[in-house]
Amino acid sequence: MGLESKLTQDGFITTTIDAVVSWARKSSVWPMPMGISCCAIEMIAAADPKYDIARFGSEVMRFTPRQCDLMIVAGTVTYKMAQVVRRIYDQMPDPKWVIAMGACTSSGGMYRSYSVVQGIDQFLPVDVYTAGCPPRPENLLNALMTIQEKIGKTKSRDFKNRSLKELELSQN
């Protein structure tokens, strides 16, 4: 089309809103490092210069849920801790994603025990499960890339702020 070539010459491109928004979202996924036990060490390793999570735009690990889009649950979640994890998840602004890192969070792992939640998907909507005990940093990066792929495929209008009523419910 004549219009497109003309605009490009002047430094414009034509695209869709969805493409731009999801590109922006997936290129800077800020993780909330929910490092509860040993898996957290590998999560930290993923942020060091050797594995360098900054290559994926996720180097900003914020210890406040209010500035995050991705919760990396790295470690054994006990029933007592589940309440805390859920409370932090609820404080993250929409849209948000969850990585269940390691065997413990995915299924309870080796802790087939009364105190450990046998899979955090019982109370959180998990997007990507990562195998391993602990998973290597590459594996976590792979999970991150999978999340990015997922974000890339999602339409921006699919995310609506949850209604106030639901939020109130989940506070209790």
Binding site: Q83, S115, V117, F123, P125
Partner: peptide, 15 residues
């Protein structure tokens, strides 16, 4: 060892 189902509360599932 695996506990008694339902004896420990979990948060309800987020959507």
């Amino acid at each position: 060892v695996i506990g008694i189902p339902g004896s420990l509360p979990l948060p309800h599932k987020a959507e």
